[in-house]
Design a binder for these strands. Structure first.
Lengths: 215, 215, 215, 215
DNA sequence: GATGAATGAGACTTCATTCAT
DNA sequence: GATGAATGAAGTCTCATTCAT
């Protein structure tokens, strides 16, 4: 009475819709090799499913990619674990270090997927218009800015501290590490964080580099 | 009797090798629309040259793209104008602002070309191994770090200032503006810099956001 | 406890077999857009029935199309109304005009369905071999020929009149109007009959175009 | 200096452009099996050429089909030989017989190609807008009407003869023979003309079927 | 028997690369 | 060397048919 299930769903994770299964397969591929050169057939194979199924569940490749990108970002964000959002607990240094570490992991994971979609506005626009937006992985930045504001209000940061600018610099610094890795051709290898990178960043953003302020 | 020249070379800029001519055409296209979806035929058309010539002068598309990327980066860097490399002249603030402005322009111009090549390690590796490296546009960062060191040595920055970390944050902040624009699907529109962006960045990197240091 | 009925049959015309229901849906589509590009799914949708049912009731698309074509022809013929079959009543001119009008309506309605099946002998042969043949809409022609013979026998037509040839010419003239319309690309628009078309046809077939016969 | 020729052109009819060669191949296929189910690959194979070439010479399948249809009609028309266009020479009967014979041959040859394109307005519209129109094979009808008018003016037809209506009936009668053959599924077999068909048609159109006219 | 998703062959088209001229 | 058409693999998508439920 109800229609047949895909073989891939029957012997395996049986309680997933094929739509979800396909998105999951695409997400796996994105995580593994980004979106560049990702074909419909690749996805079908990864999902162990016939080439044409995709079109029973999505308008086309573009919709699937947009959804998979969304799921990928979400999944990576989930995998990062808790963010220090409660100001006042722990030390500011520790909390900032956590943000930097998460920023590195997040962007190392999602940039290869975004990069492969440059020049495909249809997918990027679809992604941007998806409900429950992930903001393209920029939630981390927003959280960081909010956290900084809260610490400033608690007096653990300078009263004139610019939370936005600081967040921009901190998250931006993560890109500075991830992008060269991505563009170095060795996207396959894991990102290597130079010793002291996180530490120095945090120190610098806290202290600034200007000459001693005269009170 | 010298061998025949390509038609495009005959009427026009006559003393350029066809090799250079092709690279220049590819560079123009990169500047205009990045590397995503750039075909060999597009390049030949832009160069007003037969499709096949390319293979008389390059191993293939990959070599041409790597060279064009190199030339593109170089050309953009040249177009940025002078960088404040001499420490001690002007104010540090002004000089940093200049770096931020250049960083924004530089990455807005070259990221679309790099992004379209993610997932094509052959091109990226070739690019990385080219003689006279452009360091993928990271010369700016190196200059900035050197400049900061020099200012520190002059006493215009804190003696414990971390030039590397600061350069990373400053250039990184530029990515934070350029990447979302690139991934927003509206790559065609010009990058818009929010008012105060440059200013706030410079202030923050100089002052830091930590609580007042007690001397 | 009888077996379950298709949803579409439950709420609606409940005493039709699903087989008939499917044929009726296909007929509706044929009437609306001919057979070109008609997919199995289109038919299932029109019938508000699952894609697969078709194969529980027919050998495949071919059988269904053949039956639907048959029903379509029959239905169009029924819709034409009474034909003047009784010789001697009314004027011959009026009766012939009625035939022409019917011929135009008939072929405008069925040619788009036949045309889309050219090159699919399986369907056409099945159609031809169906019991209770509709003769591909040529019943009209047969009736016309019979009518002409009867009028001739009554003396209202020339004794040497060739009923077959005349019927061929009259019905053929209808094709001459319908085919160009069909092949003009604007099959969507309604067929337009030029003023005088019917009249002139009837006059010409009655009088002939030869020089005055000398008795 | 000039580019390579297709293998198929090299060993064979060497002085044809590949564009013409492809159109010719498509025409051959149309002549052989009409347009129904005609694929791009079929044409490439018939032309003994790679699948993709087509797109070096035509915008796409549609343009090629429109051109091939045009060439097919033209070629069939050429193959019919001379039409009796000069009024007054030979007998009217003979001349009309010639028209009927040509009409049968013409439509038997081109209807299978037109029929397969019903439901593809893009091709039909392109065809209709081609320069040097063939009028979809309706030149024959026009010639016939003109011929009839001329004979009427010469006095070899009744002064009140309606050339248009007569032409419509004569050419239409040809459809009446061709269409059932086409829709009978046996499009592969040659059209069979029943004995007396041509003769009876001509007699009937000349004499009419009405009762003897009283002078 | 009904369901409707799964299947996979095959259609059209693009594009890096080759190669006769 | 230059030319630009030819090549053919590969990509996206459609659709008749099958089949577990």
């Amino acid at each position: 009475m109800s229609p047949r299930k895909a073989a891939a769903l029957r012997d395996g994770e049986g309680d997933q819709s094929l739509r979800e299964h396909l998105v999951a397969a695409a997400v796996r591929l994105m995580a593994r090799r980004g979106t560049a050169g990702l074909t419909v057939r690749d996805i079908a194979r990864e999902a162990r499913v016939a080439d044409g199924v995709l079109y029973n569940h999505f308008e086309g490749k573009e919709e699937l990619l947009a959804l998979a990108l969304h799921a990928h970002v979400r999944s990576v964000e989930r995998g990062l674990g808790e963010r220090p959002t409660r100001a006042g607990s722990g030390t500011v240094e520790d909390n900032l270090r956590a943000y930097v570490t998460q920023g590195l992991a997040l962007h190392a994971a999602i940039l290869p997927s975004f990069a492969g979609l440059v020049g495909r506005p249809e997918v990027l626009l679809r992604f941007a218009n998806l409900p429950n937006p992930t903001a393209g992985g920029r939630g981390l930045r927003a959280d960081l800015a909010a956290y900084l504001r809260a610490e400033r209000d608690l007096g653990r940061l300078a009263p004139e501290a610019d939370a936005e600018a600081a967040a921009t610099m901190i998250i931006g610094a993560c890109h500075e590490l991830v992008l060269p890795h991505l563009f170095g051709g060795g996207a396959a290898t894991a990102l290597e964080v130079p010793p002291g990178f996180v530490e120095d960043l945090v120190t610098t953003v806290l202290n600034g580099i200007g000459p001693a302020r005269t009170p």
